[in-house]
Write a protein that binds this DNA or RNA. Structure first.
Lengths: 199, 199
DNA sequence: AAACTTACCTACTTATCAGTAAGTTCAGAA
DNA sequence: TTCTGAACTTACTGATAAGTAGGTAAGTTT
């Protein structure tokens, strides 16, 4: 028989969902157990039943991001998605963050608060960054080899600019308005040589 | 006679200096009056003497960033700096943040914590963003007109990508190491058509 | 049906936070 | 020499944080 999950309810997942939204909305140090508890209609101690500490909650959260990204890319692989399609899917991630309440990249939050989060979360953050950036580098490499992308500079350099720009623009959208996002994505695509259509 | 500053000591400025470093290191919600007080060898209440509230301290801090940027650009104007020179000076700002203890852009911090900072600070953040981005847009516009820059897309679009990429890469440097910064700046320059030398 | 586990809750502790009220020190003006 | 105000300190408050001890109802296993 399957241990956990199937038994009883899914409060644990609901806690993670609430924590995830709060993390991307306010940051790790600006949300409390009380925020989550109130939202779920449970008491503070219920969260401690599922997660021994806030550090535990935080690291579990990042591991879930990592797993989700792995699942996502694996699905794209199964579907034999090409580089252009993969790139579009990559852009769709921050786009959904923006739409769903002006959230920002989890990595952006964690990096901004990096010196004020527990070490286990710092380690998980490093892994998440590496995995995402390595994957995108692979996509850009394939795309250039196949001639569907056309850009200057090395794969690593270009990947950094794309990742950094997307992370940055989500944050800037909070002070400058959400409309700057699509504008920036358009420019990024242009500079990847992937946009042949009009401006 | 000059009011304030000349009289007595400069604790107020020292408080702002400490708060500024803490902001860019840990974020607004992750530093306390105690951090500052301990660092300066004064008591908690001494900070409250100079700043009525943490909100007051925060807004003063952002206003100081704004003033500093205005002074900086005004100096460049007086020196008749060209677009390339101005761009180099703009890159020098995040470069100094990185060198001085892996700090990140103040705006990046404020945007990441945007939904967890007081409204007066949100307003000041908007102004800081607008002023900096408008200035850079002017530089890119001049540079393109003068033929020293060569890039695709509109001025606004390009400015956003440059600003977002710089803000993002400072944050990513925390998990990926400081060496990625110069690499990214090199790529940004390349894509501004300002780098004629070898890769 | 007894024994055990899950999934909580109530009630608490300890620590830290921003903020305040009232008193102290001391330089310089009157 | 007294007085005034700037620049603090001491000693506190109330709020909120994460975390814990112990209890309980309902479901599961044996």
């Amino acid at each position: 028989m399957d241990v956990e999950d199937t038994k009883y309810n899914n409060t644990k997942e609901l806690i993670l969902d609430a924590a995830e939204a709060l993390l991307q909305d306010r940051g790790f140090n600006a949300f409390s157990y009380h925020h989550i508890a109130q939202q779920l209609g449970v008491k503070n101690a219920a969260i401690h039943y599922h997660f021994t500490s806030k550090t535990d909650l935080g690291t579990t959260l990042i591991r879930r991001f990592r797993q989700r990204f792995r699942d996502y890319t694996r699905t794209l692989e199964r579907e034999n998605a090409g580089p252009v399609s993969k790139l579009e899917c990559y852009f769709a991630i921050p786009a959904s963050y923006l739409q769903n309440g002006r959230k920002i990249c989890p990595l952006g939050v964690l990096e901004a608060e990096f010196n004020a989060i527990p070490e286990p979360m710092q380690l998980e953050s490093r892994l998440l960054d590496k995995e995402m950036r390595d994957w995108l580098a692979g996509v850009l490499d394939d795309g250039r080899s196949q001639g569907v992308f056309n850009f200057e500079g090395s794969i690593v350099d270009k990947t950094l600019v794309v990742v950094a720009a997307l992370q940055g623009v989500l944050q800037i959208a909070r002070v400058a308005g959400p409309q700057i996002f699509s504008v920036t994505v358009r420019q990024i695509k242009r500079e990847l040589g992937v946009l042949e259509k009009a401006v």
